[in-house]
Design a binder for these strands. Structure first.
Lengths: 331, 331
DNA sequence: TTGAAAGCGCTAACAC
DNA sequence: GTGTTAGCGCTTTCAA
């Protein structure tokens, strides 16, 4: 039989459809003997419950949607991997949406999915706060690497991390830093900038910002040139991709890294360890971010825990020291 | 209203539910005037058709599942991106499943999804042929980078590509090559080996195989050591990750690349351009593979085209020459 | 413990 | 062109 239903199973087992249903969803409320008969018949026919029929009634879909702002960025794959693992562990299905750095696409896709998923995990959402609040009022939402009061979030502790970055650079004698900013509507970009500036002020050193830049390797050229005009001795790029592009451009222009200028990135992507010089970068347990976000979402989707105040998980970062940072030039 | 239904819209617009349904699914079969009234009422209430109810009746879910054998491998990002783009363009939802290199997980997850998706695109499936045939008998299936008679597939032309690899190496004076094989149940590994061997025979040079290896950087050490025992002057690794690991291990052992030995990979992943030396590799339009596979799947899912003989798309590869290959040592 | 029956939201005959 | 109605496969009262 192509797609046997409970009717087929019921007929085969000589019971009512409701009994079949119970045998699957509330096995305790069926006598052991009947249950066995039903399960045997189901196995025989190759019956599998139709999740849509189930969802139609229950409103629960056993599905979560993950929206990433840019799937081209390898950084997100760690998040995706963590999310997928966690979802799978609870037999949830993970739907993947790439917003292609467009708030419009992001919003439209979310609306399209609102009635077919149990909730959303949003990675580095580019949506304005109001949109997020509106979506959160329709479905459970968990933010990754973004915060908004009232909505649960999982974030790497960038305040702490940026402090470490500045300390690292200060200890190497740098007194003038520049941050190559990420996209205008990126919460992370704003957070990093503010954390860096605060840390720099604490050390009484100069910190400026250039940008915004789309954080891709291809933008590294423009970013590097922008950075050079500041005469800063250390460049903190919005992420590793941009940093890699910056390093390439600097090489092209004959600027040595780290002898003439130090470069740092964020995310600790796979490639940052392979490029030359290898990249000093602020990493963290990205897989864990994905995992934790889905875990919170699943908690929210189950009846009990919904009332608690929205969790705000802060995961530790780690500064990975590599070849792209060194002592400030003595000039 | 939390989730208005066609009943609510029908009541608000003063029409029957079927009219509302038609206004959405077959707008031409409703008078312009009524349609407007319905759409206005729907917009007013914030109505959105419930895809599950729709799927329950029609059996079509507007969803495709993509299964990748290992999400950690950056190579798959490209496939995923292409698949996601194509699915989104047709307002299809993409479900992502990571098989974690386990045929068991792959099979179980597919079975779990059989009744909730319109079809599967399987990237480098590790399943035995029989399983694939069985799945294809339940739902449309398109293979990526794997072939099986009777099932549509999209594959990069590795026969052609491997020939180019061998020609490249022969022209550099290499007479003894070694292939570091991928996983035992990888169709791609078998294909590459067979194509490389054939090409090598055609040139009358020696080609051997070592392995299998799990194609990760971490396996490069063992793979490199295995390769060295053969005294081959050129190493063709199953993919770029393995090749990168091999290069690292060779450096550790004081073997120079490419002076003492040449190294090649497959996939042209992002990092292969950044490592030192940069990696000669067989690339191709991976995004296109993902896109084409989903496109075929969508075709299959629409009533008309189902009868045609299963398409077998062969996309061109390109050999990207970089720093890791050079003249054979004169010894 | 089990069965009969209503209904989740939507679509497609079939009437009018 | 539009309304009536019977399901799609499942869950869950309500009775027995």
């Amino acid at each position: 039989m192509a797609h046997p239903t409970i009717y087929d199973v019921a007929a085969a087992a000589g019971v009512a459809t409701s009994t079949v249903s119970r045998a699957f969803s509330t096995p305790t409320r069926v006598s052991a003997h009947t249950r066995e008969r039903v399960l045997a018949a189901a196995a025989e026919l190759g019956y599998r419950p139709n999740p849509h029929a189930r969802a139609l009634f229950s409103g629960r879909h056993h599905t979560v949607a993950m929206v990433v702002s840019d799937i081209t960025n390898p950084h997100y794959f760690e998040l995706i991997r963590g999310a997928e693992l966690r979802a799978k562990a609870s037999e949830y299905t993970l739907v993947l949406v790439n917003a292609e750095e467009s708030p419009r696409i992001e919003y439209d896709q979310i609306q399209r999915l609102v009635s077919s998923v149990d909730g959303f995990v949003l990675a580095a959402s580019r949506l304005p706060d109001e949109n997020l609040e509106q979506i959160a009022s329709q479905r459970p939402v968990v933010l990754m690497n973004r915060e908004l009061p009232g909505i649960p979030s999982v974030v790497l502790d960038h305040v702490q991390g940026c402090r470490q970055i500045v300390e690292h650079l200060v200890s190497l004698g740098h007194r003038h830093l520049v941050y190559l900013a990420g996209p205008r509507n990126s919460w992370m970009a704003a957070t990093r900038w503010s954390a860096l500036r605060t840390a720099a002020e604490g050390h009484g050193i100069r910190m400026e910002r250039v940008g915004p830049f789309t954080p891709k390797v291809s933008q590294g050229g423009a970013a590097a040139d922008g950075a050079l005009t500041t005469n800063a001795t250390a460049i903190v790029a919005h992420n590793d991709l941009l940093a890699i592009g910056v390093v390439q451009r600097l090489a092209q222009r004959g600027v040595r890294v780290p002898e003439d200028v130090s470069v740092l990135g964020f995310d600790n992507i796979f490639a940052s360890d392979l490029c030359t010089p290898s990249l000093t970068t602020l990493g963290g347990a990205h897989v864990e971010v994905g995992r934790a976000a889905v875990e919170i979402l699943l908690d929210m989707a189950t009846p009990n825990g919904k009332t608690r105040t929205p969790p705000r998980v802060l995961l530790p970062t780690e500064l990975v020291l590599r070849g792209s940072t060194g002592a400030a030039p003595s000039a």
